[in-house]
Design a binder for these strands. Structure first.
Lengths: 144, 144
DNA sequence: TTATGTAGTGGGTAATTGTGGATAAATATG
DNA sequence: CATATTTATCCACAATTACCCACTACATAA
C-alpha cells in the first residue's frame, strides 16, 4: 500500500527524486502516465499490468472511457531510477501535469500521484470544503 | 479499547512520545493520518486495514470519492516507535493539526487522537457548553 | 525515607536522503 | 565533419533523519 505526502523539487533537467520510503515499494522501474484531475500516475510494474488488463475490459462504445484509455496508454512511459532514485519526466507529461519546480508526490493505494504543489494545495482545499459530504460518506463507511 | 487523556511534548525534532499504557495496545507501528476537527488520528494496524478495505470498495469514477480517497491515503503515514516509544510527525501533518509544543493524546474507541493542547481545551469547552444538547442525544440512544 | 524501576525529555553523532552542478556520452544540426 | 544540443552518469554538498545515550521526574515498594 502506497501512502504519504512528500514535496520535492523537479529540477532544471526534469529530474524528480522519489521519496526513499516509497521507492522501496517500487522496483527498479515503473510506469509514468497521465492521470485524473491533471496529475500524473506512477505505477509499479505489477500494478500497471493490472491496470492495462482492466482498461481492456472497459466498454469501447463510450466516447469518454475511450478517451481515458487513449490518454493513459498513449501517455505511458517506462521510467528508470537513476543511482540516486530519481526519474526523468518527459516534456509532454510535465506539461500535462502543469508541473513547476515544487512538486507533490502522494501515495494513493496502488500508485503514486505527482502534482504541481499549487494545484495539489488547491485541490485539497476544494475537497476539504466539502467536509460535510465527506463526513457523511465516512459515516456510511462506518469509519468514524 | 483505547481510553485516557495525556499531555506530552512534541519536541524540536517533531518526535512525540506515545503514553506507555496506550502503546501496549498498539503494535510495533501504527498509521498516523488526518482526522476530523483538525486533529490527527493514530490507528493500530488492524483498524487501518479496515479503513483501507472500505476505501477500496469505493467507485473511483466519482470525483468526490476520488477526493476522499486521496485525502485519506495521501494524508496517512506509517510511523514506527523508536526505542523510547516515540513517533515522528511529518511536517504536513504537524501543520494540519496546528500542533505546537504541548500536545494532547486521547484514546477514542479504536484510535488515538492527537490535538494541539489549546485547541483541545477550546474544543472541550465548546462541547461542555452544549451538554444539554448532548444529554438529549444520549437519551435518544438509550444511554441514560 | 531510601532504593528501584519506569516513563518522558532532550541532545549529540552518524548515516541517509535530496539537491544541484560537473563531466562524459550520445544525438542531432549545419 | 565539426559543432551544438541534449541526455546520461557521476560527484559533492547540505539538510534531514535515524540511532544512541544521558538526565530528570515520578511512582512504587522495601
Amino acid at each position: 500500500m502506497l501512502i504519504g505526502e512528500y514535496t520535492h523539487n523537479l529540477d532544471a533537467k526534469k529530474r524528480l527524486a522519489i521519496p526513499a520510503k516509497l521507492r522501496k515499494e517500487l522496483g527498479e522501474r515503473a510506469i509514468l502516465t497521465r492521470g485524473l484531475d491533471s496529475c500524473l500516475f506512477l505505477y509499479p510494474m505489477a500494478e500497471w499490468e493490472k491496470v492495462t488488463a482492466k482498461l481492456g475490459e472497459l466498454p469501447v462504445g463510450q466516447a469518454d472511457t475511450r478517451g481515458l484509455i487513449r490518454l493513459m496508454l498513449a501517455g505511458a512511459v517506462e521510467v528508470e531510477f537513476d543511482a540516486l532514485g530519481r526519474i526523468l519526466v518527459p516534456d509532454y507529461l510535465k506539461a500535462f501535469g502543469a508541473l513547476g519546480t515544487r512538486v507533490v508526490i502522494a501515495g494513493v493505494y496502488n500508485r503514486l500521484e505527482i502534482w504541481d504543489e499549487k494545484r495539489w494545495t488547491a485541490y485539497k482545499a476544494g475537497v476539504e470544503r466539502n467536509t460535510d459530504l465527506i463526513a457523511e460518506k465516512l459515516g456510511e463507511l462506518g469509519l468514524y
